[in-house]
């Protein structure tokens, strides 16, 4: 939250995370850290409520059109969904470890774990986009008015696909934002910004990445496993 640059001030050769000064309106680094963490937790609350709308729509339409939802979920490959679940769980472990690395000042491991998390996020998006969205869209299993799959047996299957693409699409957008943020963390880690005395951003982005993971944990069984 400070505007100081990474070039050392005159005569101050300590590493960045020790030189780091909190923003003017905080009394100490600890106060700033607590505020950042609290702010991120509130942001997570908004994320839960955002997805609550989608889960609610899922519940309502599953109740209205159970046949369409059962048919629709048969078209999803649970193995790909499970692979993505494992990938996200693994990435949650590495991002949690990266916070630990920052606290311990293990910059090499910090960078490794951040890079690994980015790769996991990218793998998730590739599986989602290349192996799931693309073949389905090509087969006409598209949302709403673009639905042209000839073998649909229930007239309301377009609604199922609408909810599937909205829920996973909004989630994938969150994964993409997370990848950007973690890449930013990696660059800052490379510049030596993080260490035992300053790792606000790592902690905040880490929390965000966990909520992205947790939401997928709910989406996976609802969309792929329940018939």
């Amino acid at each position: 939250m400070s505007s100081i640059t990474s070039t050392p001030a005159s005569g101050d050769t300590r590493p960045y995370h020790e030189r780091y000064k909190p923003a003017d309106h905080f009394r100490s680094r600890d106060d700033e850290f607590d505020a950042v963490k609290f702010g991120v937790w509130l942001l997570l609350a908004t994320e839960v409520l955002l997805f609550a709308g989608l889960f609610c729509a899922y519940a309502v339409f599953r109740m209205l059109y159970p046949e369409a939802f059962a048919n629709g979920s048969h078209h999803l490959n649970w193995k790909l969904g499970a692979a993505n679940t494992v990938i996200l769980l693994l990435s949650s472990f590495t991002i949690a470890t990266s916070i630990h690395n920052a606290q311990k000042g293990q910059i090499g491991w910090l960078k490794f774990n951040l890079a690994f998390t980015v790769l996991c996020g990218a793998a998730f998006l590739v599986i989602k986009g290349v192996f799931e969205y693309y073949p389905k869209l090509s087969a006409g299993k598209a949302p709403g008015i673009f639905f042209s799959y000839p073998f649909a047996t229930d007239p309301y299957e377009p609604i199922w696909w609408g909810i599937y693409y909205c829920a996973t699409g909004v989630h994938a957008t969150h994964v993409f934002v997370g990848i950007c943020l973690i890449t930013w963390l990696f660059i800052r880690a490379h510049k030596g910004h993080f260490g035992p005395t300053h790792y606000n951003a790592v902690e905040g982005v880490g929390l965000y990445w966990h909520i992205v993971d947790v939401i997928w944990i709910f989406l996976f069984p609802l969309l792929y496993l329940i018939h």
């Binding site: 609350a45 908004t46 994320e47 409520l49 955002l50 997805f51 609550a52 709308g53 989608l54 729509a57 339409f61 209205l64 059109y65 949302p143 709403g144 008015i145 673009f146 007239p155 309301y156 377009p158 609604i159 696909w161 609408g162 909810i163 693409y165 909205c166 909004v170």
Partner: peptide, 29 residues
């Protein structure tokens, strides 16, 4: 706590208009 809900509502409404996903439109179920 309340604003994210209008966020998803308006987003779904935009998708409804652009893609006709049929969540809110009675003609589509």
């Amino acid at each position: 706590l309340a604003t994210p809900v209008i966020g998803i509502t308006t987003l779904l409404l935009v998708f409804e208009r652009l893609f006709g996903i049929g969540i809110f439109d009675p003609n589509l179920g």
